[in-house]
């Protein structure tokens, strides 16, 4: 039976949903599953690691792993992969996963595939599906090496109801710190905000909102809807929105129930990050804007006029009295 090691996605001490999604997929293709959890003070997550669908939990819990550093994290993953005898090692979609996966592959002499949306297993033959060329093509990739390290695209797999596992904890020894790449600090921007990856509704601003006042106008709408608040790259580069809010190929990949693109033209790199949304609403004054080619509902108009009306109308619909 193939063995899949899933790397737990832990953010700010919280186990993210992608871990259960990946484990569900591993079970669905008939694999034996294990999870590796790497961090500091993560003891309390162990029961949920098992119930997420893993049969063995490799845990590296050490103060030296408090701040992300790719070298030591890769050491832990390689250690767990060797002990488990993993055929596949899957990371959820994250910047840390993207940094660690190629290292692990190089160390294990395994194949590496990033951004995968599907995995097929026939006997020993592994194949994966992934987009390339900014989503302009889809590749089917055949793995020739004995092992595959993969980063799974956000939203690719679904967690199965009633998935179970067994608690069987294996402690990993803490890795040596990377003395040549010393993490000094993490300037964290987001706290207490709705995580774009988890939000049901995401509203993003583009260059069309022009400035801080425009951002504030759309932010009111986002607050009203308790929506995640995202951005195109243009607004990040202009300094009006922080980096971690960027949606797109080089930012977050989101697939909410409703995505609103406000003053965003719809460049392919932006679409690469939100095209998987269930319903897309676009507001743009240019009727030819490419965003309308993917939007289910398009409002052609001046966003400064439309957004306040949008907010009022939504308020009306959502208030029990209305």
């Amino acid at each position: 039976m193939a063995k899949v090691l899933v790397i737990a996605d832990i953010k700010q001490g919280v186990l993210k949903g992608s871990t259960a999604e990946l484990l569900s997929k591993a079970k669905a293709i008939g694999a034996e599953t294990a999870v590796a959890a790497i961090g500091n003070n993560i003891e309390s997550l162990i029961p949920s690691l098992a119930t997420s669908g893993s049969d063995t939990q490799y845990v590296a819990d050490d103060p030296g792993l408090e701040l992300f550093s790719a070298g030591p994290y890769a050491c832990c993953v390689v250690d767990a992969a060797r002990q488990f005898g993993a055929d596949m090692i899957w990371f959820g979609f994250s910047e840390s996963g993207k940094a660690v996966a190629p290292r692990v592959a190089a160390q294990l002499d395994a194949a590496c595939a990033t951004d995968i949306t599907d995995v097929m297993l026939e006997g020993d033959q592994i194949e994966v599906i992934r987009p390339a060329i900014t989503n302009k093509v889809i590749q089917r990739v055949k793995v020739n090496a004995g092992q595959l390290v993969a980063v799974v695209r956000a939203g690719a797999f679904e967690a199965t109801e009633g998935i179970t596992g067994t608690e069987n904890v294996v402690r990993l020894s803490p890795p040596a710190p990377d003395l040549k790449a010393v993490i000094k600090e993490i300037v964290s921007e987001a706290s207490g905000e709705i995580d774009l990856a988890d939000a049901d509704v995401v509203i993003s601003v583009g260059r069309g909102v022009k400035d801080q006042a425009g951002v504030a106008l759309v932010k009111e709408l986002a607050d009203e809807l308790e929506a995640g608040f995202g951005s195109s790259r243009a607004m990040v580069d202009a300094g009006f929105m922080p980096h971690y809010k960027q949606v797109g190929q080089t930012g977050k990949i989101v697939a909410p129930t409703l995505y609103m693109a406000i003053g965003i033209s719809g460049a392919i790199q932006h679409l690469a990050g939100m095209k998987g949304s269930k319903v897309i609403l676009a507001v743009n004054k240019d009727p030819e804007a490419p965003i309308f080619n993917v939007a289910d509902y398009g409002i052609v108009g001046d966003l400064f006029e439309v957004v306040p009306i949008l907010r009022e109308e939504i308020k009306k619909i959502r208030s029990p009295a209305g």
Binding site: D109, V137, R140, K142, N144, L148, G298, I309, L310
Partner: peptide, 29 residues
């Protein structure tokens, strides 16, 4: 090679839906 692309496919196309032009208050509602 540790892996190789054996097939390229066209991505699923997402079609545009309804586009509204005209009076902002009316079409937004």
């Amino acid at each position: 090679l540790k892996s190789e692309v054996v097939e390229f496919m066209a991505p699923e196309k997402r079609e545009g839906g309804q586009k509204f032009e005209g009076d902002a208050a009316e079409i937004t509602a």
